[in-house]
Write a protein that binds this DNA or RNA. Structure first.
Lengths: 348, 348
DNA sequence: ATTTAGCACTCTTAAGGCGTGAGTGCTAAA
DNA sequence: TTTAGCACTCACGCCTTAAGAGTGCTAAAT
């Protein structure tokens, strides 16, 4: 009765996990025996199951029910037993096709991401979620101030990734178009490849250091541009395929849980916390149940992966579903999709 | 047994509607009699109820259950019996406060709308929905082309309402900044107060009429700018407070219906169809059940009202909820909110 | 020492039967 | 015209029962 699970027990666990994923019902010894082609009798399976229960990989909802894998059981399955299934015939094509359509047109990056995300939710049958990293941390391509009306200036920042960020600022009616022109060329002389945050700091320090160098109007304009993209800007969050959670019996049965999840979907910060771990890392992230450390979503699993533009990470895309998820299918799907996004941004 | 409902019957109907709205349960004659302070005995009420059933304002789910108002019953109630309840203490303040916070900052119009919509969903306990009219139909303030990178041009259009619309277009690497400058001042010489659609047509006809007048580069640039804001641009749709539909017992009980509604929320075109009628008209629109002519949402009610910027309509905001909705509260709430949006846009 | 057949036992689930109560419609009296 | 009275209907909750799935344990088989 060692804590290390031997190979035979592992096969039984796999079998239980896979059956449970397919049926959402507790799995009995008889079923496992059949699925293993009668290599072992139900009685033997029962012994092994008892062992697996002892190490915490299985539980019984009640006496005389079959077993259900625990979060720990799923974790072991994913880490040690999972055989990846490659993408289904057509899935890859569908994604590529949609990508082609999206990548070609003048679609904005956000629309592109939403598009791909929706497709992912359709292919997976789960809810798809994307976060786009805070634009303040993306690298700039160029920046420009322009007159919007007599008392308003529009600041436009174009990122390396093709994202366009803009903001209308009030006042400053006495700054002329010529001033703006000057400011533009001044800003762009050192803007390239900085992040917005860096740019803001840079402008601030320039202003402080060489006060004399700039006339008053120019100073005010620069100061205004510096506070334009402040902390109030957040990365975008997209959720697609919410209705899919109603396909999962475990969610439908428990309205309270359903409410909690739907509410979580509406809180951008929650989704952001859920996915930003995946944004940093290279590999795909799988978190089972409360592993994600987000109380509101303690009973869902998340499969997510970051996507990049060049060397800087742009965001992450993933799936939210029940713990009982078809990981062998979902993991490659998310992986492929995140990769696709990276490739698509490469082309921009 | 006339088809015209006399005053007493109307009072009974009101009573039934209001009780049903509060409890979501069929209402019996005994209850109505009590609520009317025993003015009439249950037996009399039963007779009246039978009449109301005959004209189609009530139904019985089964013999020996109380009565439930039909869509027609609700319609009659709204058209003839509804006493508006004014906003609750604090609701108005909350909305104004949030509005002040939102209106002041450099928040984008879309964020403002989303903000107000979310608040509406919280105050109403229903799902709130907003559509923003297609920007192509909004009037321009000014337009500007700028170099984004060696092979990309950014076109930015600022609308009278403060909406900023932008698009990155490919190619045209040999158009210089000077060319762009020229194009900008040319475009802006007649841009003001045109819609994007009108501008596009104008540019096209100019190009055709006076070919000689423009050099080749300029022509190409103008042609590019003309196809920038094409038909692919759609108005935005925001849905807030989806989780609120789970507060309604009638939706929780029927998962199929729930799925249908949730799916509908994800289809922008569906929401658009649902609300665009309200966008045109002046008054608030109430559509009960299938009155909205959107199959996917045949069993919900919608209370919606347009909001404007100056004389042109900008979109509409509303609530989606069960037919059994608290109209006397929801109608003023939506009305006030739509008005608030109009006022906020006025200030921009 | 492991595996397995057999068996008693547990517990869920579905089905049937029954009483209760809410609510009705009808009739006859006020 | 209204209302009291009454018989009737039907959903709902509760109980009992039977079936079935699945277990754990023991003893025999390998």
């Amino acid at each position: 009765m060692s804590l290390i699970v031997d190979d035979r027990a592992a096969q039984v666990l796999r079998c239980i996990v896979e059956d449970y994923v397919a049926t959402a019902e507790p799995v009995g010894s008889r079923t496992v025996s059949k699925r293993m082609e009668q290599a072992l009798s139900p009685a033997t399976i029962r012994n092994i199951m008892a062992d697996l229960e002892e190490v915490g990989f299985l539980v019984q909802p009640h006496t005389s029910a079959g077993r259900v894998p625990t979060a720990a059981g799923f974790r072991f399955y994913i880490d040690n037993l999972l055989l990846r299934r490659s993408l289904m015939l057509g899935e890859e094509e569908q994604l590529k096709l949609a990508a082609g359509k999206a990548g070609a047109g003048g679609e904005s990056p956000d629309d592109l991401v939403r598009h791909v995300s929706r497709l992912l939710s359709q292919l997976s049958g789960q809810t798809s979620v994307v976060i786009v990293s805070n634009p303040n941390q993306q690298r700039l391509r160029c920046i420009s101030l322009m007159r919007a009306s007599t008392d308003k200036i529009l600041v436009v920042a174009i990122m390396q990734s093709g994202h366009v960020q803009h903001r209308l600022i009030d006042g400053e009616p006495d700054i002329t178009s010529d001033d703006l022109e000057k400011i533009n060329s001044y800003l762009n002389s050192f803007t390239e490849r900085l992040t917005l945050t860096q740019l803001r700091m840079k402008v601030r320090s320039e202003l402080r250091r060489e006060k004399a160098k700039y006339d008053r109007v120019m100073q005010r304009a620069l100061a205004a541009s510096a506070r334009v993209f402040d902390e109030s800007v957040h990365g975008e969050v997209f959720v697609e395929g919410r209705a899919n959670i109603l396909e999962q019996p475990e969610f439908v049965e428990d309205v309270q849980r359903l409410k909690r999840i739907l509410r979580a979907f509406e809180e951008k910060t929650v989704i952001y916390r859920l996915l930003d771990r995946a944004m940093a890392g290279e590999a795909i992230q799988v978190s089972i149940g409360c592993e994600n450390n987000v109380e509101e979503l303690g009973d869902v699993s998340v499969v997510a992966s970051g996507y990049r533009h060049g060397d800087s990470s742009m965001g992450s895309i993933g799936l939210i579903g029940p713990v009982r998820m078809d990981y062998p299918r979902m993991i490659p799907l998310v992986e492929y999709t995140a990769n696709l996004l990276t490739v698509l941004f490469e082309q921009r």
